Computed example of a mutant assay.
Amino acid sequence: MNKIISKPESIIGITGYCPGCGHGVIQRLIAESIEELGIQDNIINVVDIACSYWSMDTMNFDSIAGPHGRCAAVATGIKKVRPKTNVYVHAGDGSSYVIGLSETIFTALRDVPITMIVVNNGIFGMTGGQLNLATTPLGDKTVSSPYGRNSENYGSPINMMEVLKNYDVEFLARGALFNGKEINKTKRYIKQGFKNQINNKGFSLIEILSNCPTNWKLSPIEAADKVKEVYTKIFPLGVYKDRGEKNE
């Protein structure tokens, strides 16, 4: 019998994501995971004042947008006063690893039981495509590095999974979206992050390598190929830390 696939019921509107952007795929994976776990009536979504902000208009969840870069801190505050609520962050790498680096680090340090989903597209997308000190590959041209990123002026990108795994956190994993196999694997990581929170196990962060065709000035197919050929070499995929049992 053929399986009928429909959109998650939690997605109730159309977003303004650019064509080919990975945020929309991530949004669907989040909604599917939440519905499959049956927790859609007990969710608070914390988004950044950036691309992920669109999900506030699209997802049928209680949502709040914190100041740029402060998602982890806002989510921590919500979790402290509503510990039985499932709180998740949907934010970018600029928010989480640059402007909000301190907030992300201290949330991990305290092992706050939230689910943090970080979209790594190597750039500040919403504000026009500026260089991201944490994730822009060497040589890439951006509006703030028109001659290409070099280590002398801008330093080199950093694998934040390697940094965060030094803390006593529950779960760290990195997925990608460049093909169906990796999308399915990424969904398993997201779902595991929510399972950990349901069981009050501790801090989970899932980073997702995503393409940004608009700011990269590439077609969606070319952008997906860049993620596969360039980004996965700098930011290897897989589970970096799993304090609990083996994932299902």
Rank of each mutant, 00 (worst) to 15 (best):
N196R: 08
G129Y: 04
G148S: 05
E170G: 09
N153L: 15
E245K: 13
S33E: 00
H90G: 09
N86E: 11
E229K: 13
V46Y: 00
I4Q: 11
D225P: 04
N211P: 15
F124A: 14
D225F: 10
G16R: 01
A73M: 06
K84T: 14
I11M: 06
L109Y: 15
A72P: 02
D140F: 12
G193W: 00
R70P: 00
P220Q: 06
Q130E: 07
I26L: 11
R188D: 13
I4R: 10
G244H: 06
M116L: 14
I190D: 02
V74I: 15
K226Q: 08
H68E: 06
V169I: 09
A173N: 04
S55Q: 09
V74Y: 05
V25F: 05
I34W: 02
G100C: 07
I158G: 01
A50P: 03
Y154R: 12
I99Q: 10
V47C: 07
N196L: 08
G155L: 03
K181G: 10
A108H: 02
V227W: 04
I105P: 00
G244E: 08
I105G: 02
V239N: 02
S10M: 03
T135C: 01
A75N: 04
T104L: 15
R149T: 04
Q130C: 06
K241I: 08
K217M: 06
N60A: 14
I117A: 08
L138M: 14
V87P: 01
G202D: 03
E248T: 11
N200S: 10
G238W: 00
T136M: 01
Q192L: 09
K233D: 07
R188H: 09
I43T: 00
V98W: 02
C212K: 06
L172W: 00
V119I: 13
V98M: 02
C21T: 07
S63H: 09
S96R: 04
S151P: 03
V74S: 10
K80D: 13
T15S: 14
G202R: 01
V25G: 04
L131F: 03
R110T: 02
S219W: 06
A176V: 00
I11K: 02
F61P: 04
A65V: 12
S52T: 14
S151W: 05
E248G: 07
N199Y: 11
L218H: 03
T76H: 10
K187W: 03
R82D: 10
N60G: 11
R28W: 02
G20M: 00
